[in-house]
Design a protein around this nucleic acid. Structure first.
Lengths: 217, 217
DNA sequence: TCCCTTACCGTACGCTGTATTTCGTGGATA
DNA sequence: TATCCACGAAATACAGCGTACGGTAAGGGA
């Protein structure tokens, strides 16, 4: 099997899944492929373009989820697929929103989302569409990032309470015991572990409701 | 003036403002301060902790904006202050949502936001509060990141249409001319340049409305 | 006066992305 | 068949990174 952009991207993705984005280097990808590091630059101009390649490969999977018959179902499907992708490939969350996503599959996802939103009842002109797209994109980006970071710290500190207290505790509990952050303290102590997917879906629905029932400003 | 964490953070922020996060290195900060690179590690354990320092310094400015008398005004003020901070310090947007923000000032901002939201009419229990906080945090993170990236690409490609077409055009216009992305094409061609701050405010208001008028799930 | 502790700094290592040079090999020509 | 060329791949080189470590200079106590 000859070398190709797709194969390079696949290998890079595999490595990034295991070692994270910081643990990903051109040299390691090359070694994994059994070639010299410079070979990669015959297929890619930059390390940055390599990341773009990886990102678009993930968007390819997201694009498969789109295109339901109903606009709302389409938007929800894409949002959930994006979230799922980021949970499978946490580095994807690091890149999300950090660069313009202009690969063919990213554009396809954008097209599906935009097309769906343009059929929503409250979206009347192109300005409304732009706003609606911006709103749901912003939420998805932020929510996914938040969830991934949360998951990472939970993993690194240990998931159970005692281990958590041993790691972040000394600092954080001391902070919370100052009494200067009562509400945060209440959230940390009493806060239940809400189902992440359900919360995601719920908030997204709320935003969609807000968009569709919006009187023109 | 002796060396201190605050002074280090201030210098690092100044450098990052000019050269971005990628152009920021321990060595450059040290050189700017006229000391050896290793001196910094007497005040900071990691490069990562240095970033935390910078982030919390920015949160200090954000915290000043909070604490209005009305809950909604407070949330809006904090959100706008966060956005303003990210526009002043674009690297802040790169870090936003990417790590847990546990510095004292970040906690203070979290406290103000949470306290405000807990007084919103639709927020009844701690679960509601957690959800509401998550929703507006997610939106702010995503929206700010989006806007900063947009601003960056606009700056790098040039702001006027012809320069833009010369840079991204060859690829993007070809893409759009395939006809596979009609809605995106319409957005790019006909899309007006909406006022970013106004859009931010508008969407945020929509989300707040959605939260406060939410029937319990 | 001598020693010890403490604070500080320069050097060094292994890594990064990438530009450039060298090398090995297959094919074409004399 | 012998020779040369061209071209693709690999090795080397360079500047910069975060940071571990060893040495040194300064100041206080015996």
């Amino acid at each position: 099997m000859p070398l190709s952009r797709a194969k390079i991207a696949a290998t890079a993705i595999r490595l990034a899944d295991v070692h994270g984005l910081d643990g990903l280097s051109v040299r390691k990808i090359a070694k994994e492929l059994g070639i010299g590091p410079m070979r990669l630059y015959d297929y890619v101009v930059n390390r940055s373009e390599l990341l773009d390649l990886m990102v678009d490969a993930v968007y390819a999977r997201i694009a498969e989820a789109g295109q339901r018959s109903e606009w709302r179902a389409t938007v929800l499907a894409i949002a959930h697929a994006t979230r799922d992708a980021a949970l499978d490939h946490e580095w994807f969350a690091d890149l999300l929103g950090g660069r313009p996503h202009l690969g063919p599959h990213a554009l396809a996802v954008g097209e599906s989302t935009a097309a769906a939103l343009s059929q929503a009842p409250g979206v009347r002109g192109i300005d409304d569409l732009q706003r609606a797209l911006g709103a749901i994109n912003a939420f998805v980006i932020g929510a996914v990032r938040r969830e991934v970071t949360e998951r990472r710290t939970a993993r690194s500190t240990g998931t159970d309470l005692t281990a958590w207290q041993a790691t972040l505790g000394p600092y954080l509990t001391r902070m919370l015991e100052t009494g200067r952050y009562p509400t945060v303290a209440r959230l940390v102590v009493d806060g239940a572990h809400l189902d992440a997917e359900e919360t995601f879906d719920h908030t997204l629905t709320t935003i969609l409701d807000g968009i569709t029932s919006q009187p023109r400003t």
